[in-house]
Amino acid sequence: MNQILEQISICIQKGKVDSKMAYPPEMKGMPGADELTKAALDEGFSANDILSGALIHGMGIVGDLFREKRLFVPQVLMSAMAMKAAMVHLKPFFSSGELKQKGTFIIGTVAGDLHDIGKNLTAMMIEGAGWRVIDLGTDVKTERFLEVLNENGNAVVGLSALLTTTMEQMERSVKAIREHFPENRIVVGGAPVNSEFAKRIGASLYAPNPQVAVEYINSI
């Protein structure tokens, strides 16, 4: 990998947002994902090289380390901040059509459930993997999932639930999505959910952590 792309990837992995950010201590005063991404564009690297060769690469490593419990939520959130700082510079290339996202991922916490940490982490990791994410928030009714699917025909849908009681709502939503959009992939996750439950309600995948969801949708 080219040196500057590798540096950007390291910034993502370490959560180094910009030169002003004192974290991580061993990179204090050094340029972060923000400055390095701008510099890479100035040096003539294509937006696609930066996205796939540095940002997605870096977030992939973060996802693996999080899955292995060698990184924890605060560090992942810092990586997501670094990714966001870099993406600011790439945004115009998405608007112009030079950069294309891999697809659309619609995500939400099911109706009756207001918990969002797991959902937010998954959204960040999927965005970091090069997908467009439509985050519907928490307490999302089935009708809202269907409405947004209507507007984004090929999207993959992700449903999250933290409460055992809202698993029933997850089942209702998944069944309704299956009925109206039989071809679309559905990923489910959350503390009380498991693969047996996912299979029973007709979901395509149970993701015990965000990286499993990323690998699955990238393989579609």
Partner: peptide
């Protein structure tokens, strides 16, 4: 707020 708090542990 959960996410803000967790990031603040680092910042």
């Amino acid at each position: 707020g959960y996410e803000n708090a967790l990031v603040s542990l680092i910042i």
